[in-house]
């Protein structure tokens, strides 16, 4: 079940997020304005989520075009 709080936006545009919610949260957030909603999402470290997940050889990285061709043929 979702937790809901009502909060005010002050004259500087600041909003209070409950401390317990912020406890394990990143200090950076992303604000998304979509239709009549403003969505606030934790900014994830995008790079770390995909970084270093695949072990390529030196030769594969030197020849990315060959790698693409092998991938396309699924050799």
């Amino acid at each position: 079940m979702a937790n809901v709080v009502y909060s005010k936006i002050d004259k500087f545009g600041r909003i209070i997020i409950p401390a317990s919610w912020r406890k394990h949260m990143s200090k950076r957030v992303v604000l998304i304005r979509h239709l009549n909603e403003i969505i606030l999402k934790e900014e994830k470290d995008y790079l770390s989520e995909i970084s270093g997940k695949v072990k390529f050889t030196d030769n594969e990285l030197r020849n990315i075009e060959t790698l693409k061709a092998k991938g396309a043929l699924n050799e």
């Binding site: 790079l47 995909i50 270093g52 997940k53 695949v54 072990k55 390529f56 030196d58 990285l61």
Partner: peptide
């Protein structure tokens, strides 16, 4: 481009060549 994404997902610990 694709090569940037390939470098991003690469685990550099598996590489031997310093330039790579």
């Amino acid at each position: 481009d694709t090569n940037v994404l390939v470098y991003l997902i690469t685990d550099e610990r598996a590489l031997k060549n310093k330039d790579q």
